[in-house]
Amino acid sequence: MKSFEILDNKDTRSGFGAGLLEIGKQDPRVVAMCADLTGSLVMNLFKDEFPDRFFQAGIMEANMMGVAAGMALGGKIPFTGTFANFSTGRVYDQIRQSIAYSHANVKICASHAGLTLGEDGATHQILEDIGLMKMLPGMVVINPCDYNQTKAATIAIAKYFGPVYLRFGRPKWPVFITEDTPFVIGKALMLSEGTDVSIFATGHLVWKAIEAGHQLAQKGISAEIINIHTIKPLDVEAVIASAKKTGCVVTAEEHQMNGGLGDSIAQLLARTLPTPLEMVAVNDSFGESGTPDQLLVKYGLDSYDITAAAERAISRKN
């Protein structure tokens, strides 16, 4: 099991803010809108540098999606910013018709996703957003794992034409992806090669999967850790190749089991390469208030849960 140095401890939303500033400097077509959460999404960096290209949307997410669609259809590259809950469920029909169906080049950027939002509780802890967004035809869905990857993803999506959902979070989290690691939309990132079990993880749980990899190594189990930052389009070849090699699979994500990354991988493997599969995800439940660490433990998303899932998956191999 490969060891990863913790380079820093930073929130992924700050990676988004830094990436937005950088791509704003590179491409004058980039504009940004935020629904009264400019500081929370660290969009103040862009706002201060490009006040004429930043638009305060107010607490009007539906209108923000429509205005962004119009600007995109006219030739701009709008980035919308609000919490993940208000970026998806609240405005699903606006995204579906004005953005996805109209193929508007809008980048829907969503912070505070999942349980690690913490103390604000279940009203704000959306665990359904990946599923909602991946069902929309043509929508790209990305959930990066640390500050550096979020920054790189933010820059990458501006260079891609088409609607994108970019999901990130609130807490400070270990930074372990190096700054020079290329971000390729739809390309899985091999973190550590192994032979006994494949662990496909996305978002904050990628770090938990690495921790689980070390726990498994101590038990003499060789885990392959793969970072699926792009849930749609899924890197089909990478998933199948790893599942074929190890013979069993664990998925890990800060999302409902229904509709998430595990659901996408299970569907793929059921159709192409039936493989024992265990999912580490929230099981048809809302979250609650608590610290991020407490919540990950309570809802079964900790590194020990990934380790246990890997052992279950291995035991199901023929």
């Binding site: 539906a62 209108n63 669609a69 119009g70």
Partner: peptide, 21 residues
């Protein structure tokens, strides 16, 4: 230039076009 039918959305889109101009 944009899909409409689900009501209430086109005015926002028109505003977006106007701001882009």
């Amino acid at each position: 230039r944009v899909a409409t039918g689900s009501l209430g959305q086109g005015l926002s889109v028109a505003i977006g076009f106007a701001m882009q101009k």
